[in-house]
């Protein structure tokens, strides 16, 4: 039981962290509150299902194709729907909601509301202290941790990462330093959607694929971003594990009460905000400028 909670909490935390970091990047650099972020995560999951189950591609190939296609879709949506109205933040917010609903309806109409699944990459399980842990769970955990390390390396050690962090802090100055802010924004969208799609690929064997599967991660992700402090990558990271473990605890301790998981997450968020209104790692706005 304890081990189950730890493994499950770690996987959930890592998945939420990857989603929240991607969301924060686009929020910081392009000033887009991307409600469709987790809908793109769902898109990757559906594409993997289509590739592996319906078209009979090898699972790994289906995953790679799904990630590439999802990124392309994200970029097309950004160029066609978001960039032309980028000056109007409220309109952008509504447009991203529309994109999310559109994706949901497309999948609902194409596949119905059925619960679909993708086979695991590796079969079999391990028994540790009486708890059964599938290899797929361990693989998902390992891969998501590797991705988190990779994201950190990308942000701190590469040129694009530096460009991204500086643009997120002050667009105008980045512009004055000779940086093509629009190109940086486009690359950020690609990185962010890529993260969401890869996260989808990592966990899709562990979850059910259905047209509303983007809702719960969305709520968790927004709660995490607010909890951690808007725009703070460290905040997203820490917040994700707090809420990931909170969710695992609820699901395992109260088998009948797992419908409470959203409300527990949001309650944790409210509690933290009562004590620290700027979030765990947020900067208060006066200090910003």
């Amino acid at each position: 039981m304890l081990l189950d909670i730890i493994i499950d909490g770690l996987i959930k935390g890592s998945v939420y962290a990857l989603l929240a970091i991607g969301f924060s990047l686009v929020l910081g650099v392009a000033r887009i509150i991307n409600i469709a972020h987790t809908a793109l995560f769902m898109t990757a999951a559906y594409l993997i299902y289509i590739g592996s189950k319906l078209m009979g591609l090898p699972l790994l190939l289906a995953m790679a194709a799904a990630v590439v296609l999802t990124v392309l879709l994200g970029l097309v949506v950004y160029r066609l729907f978001i960039q032309p109205i980028q000056e109007h933040e409220a309109a952008v917010l509504i447009a991203t909601i529309a994109v999310a609903m559109m994706l949901q309806e497309v999948f609902l109409m194409s596949f119905g509301g059925h619960y679909l699944g993708v086979p695991p990459l590796v079969d079999g399980y391990l028994t540790i202290m009486g708890a059964k842990i599938t290899y797929q769970h361990l693989l998902a955990l390992g891969l998501s941790l590797v991705m988190l390390v990779g994201v950190r390396f990308f942000l701190m050690q590469t040129r694009l990462g530096l460009a991204l962090r500086s643009t997120a802090q002050d667009r105008e100055v980045a512009n004055l330093m000779g940086m093509d802010v629009n190109r940086v924004a486009l690359l950020t969208v690609a990185v962010s959607v890529g993260l969401a799609a890869m996260t989808g690929a990592i966990v899709v064997p562990l979850i059910t694929v259905e047209p509303t599967m983007w809702m719960h991660p969305l709520i968790m992700m927004l709660a995490i971003v607010v909890l951690g402090g808007l725009g703070s990558i460290e905040g997203s990271f820490v917040g994700a594990y707090i809420l990931g473990f909170a969710e695992s605890l609820v699901v395992f301790m109260l088998p009948m009460g797992s419908f409470l998981k959203d409300s527990v997450a949001l309650s944790v968020m409210i509690l933290v905000l009562l004590i620290r209104p700027e979030g765990l790692f947020g900067v208060s706005f006066e200090e910003e400028r």
Partner: peptide, 13 residues
């Protein structure tokens, strides 16, 4: 860029 170290500020340029 207030939250970046000095060196990163210059690296951006």
């Amino acid at each position: 860029f207030r939250r970046l170290p000095i060196i990163a500020n210059v690296m951006v340029s």
